[in-house]
Amino acid sequence: MNITIRQETEKDYEFSETVVEKAFKNAEHSDHTEQFLVAKLRKSNVFVPELCLVAEINEEIVGHIMLTKLLVKDGEKKYESLALAPVSVLPEYQNKGIGSKLILQSLKISKEMGFESVIVLGHDKYYPRFGFRPASKWGIKTPFDVPDESFMALELKDGSLDGITGTVVYSKEFFE
Results as ranks from 00 to 15, higher is better:
136 S>P: 10
75 G>L: 13
71 L>I: 11
136 S>C: 04
150 S>K: 04
49 P>C: 09
84 L>T: 08
140 I>H: 08
40 K>Q: 14
96 K>W: 03
143 P>Q: 11
64 H>F: 15
84 L>N: 01
140 I>D: 04
127 Y>K: 05
76 E>L: 14
30 S>M: 01
26 N>K: 09
28 E>G: 10
153 A>I: 01
96 K>C: 11
86 P>Y: 05
141 K>L: 15
69 K>T: 12
156 L>Q: 07
80 E>S: 12
85 A>I: 09
52 C>W: 03
125 K>Q: 15
144 F>N: 07
89 V>N: 08
66 M>K: 03
24 F>Q: 01
48 V>N: 07
122 G>Y: 07
58 N>Y: 03
93 Y>L: 09
101 K>P: 09
142 T>P: 10
120 V>P: 02
100 S>E: 12
121 L>I: 14
65 I>T: 15
127 Y>W: 08
31 D>P: 10
64 H>S: 11
77 K>Y: 10
133 R>T: 15
40 K>I: 05
112 E>A: 14
52 C>I: 05
55 A>T: 11
112 E>H: 09
60 E>D: 13
131 G>Y: 00
105 Q>S: 13
25 K>W: 01
99 G>T: 11
59 E>C: 06
109 I>E: 04
92 E>Q: 14
52 C>N: 11
65 I>K: 05
52 C>E: 06
144 F>K: 09
24 F>S: 05
29 H>F: 13
79 Y>L: 11
26 N>I: 06
112 E>K: 14
141 K>C: 12
66 M>P: 08
105 Q>L: 11
84 L>P: 12
108 K>W: 03
129 R>Y: 07
80 E>V: 10
131 G>W: 01
102 L>Y: 02
112 E>F: 08
81 S>V: 02
27 A>T: 12
55 A>G: 14
114 G>I: 12
33 T>K: 06
125 K>G: 13
86 P>K: 00
38 V>R: 00
32 H>T: 01
73 K>N: 07
27 A>C: 11
58 N>T: 09
67 L>R: 00
108 K>M: 12
24 F>D: 02
111 K>G: 01
137 K>N: 14
41 L>T: 03
123 H>D: 15
140 I>K: 00
136 S>G: 02
45 N>R: 01
55 A>V: 09
71 L>H: 10
143 P>G: 02
125 K>H: 13
56 E>H: 06
130 F>I: 14
148 D>M: 13
127 Y>Q: 11
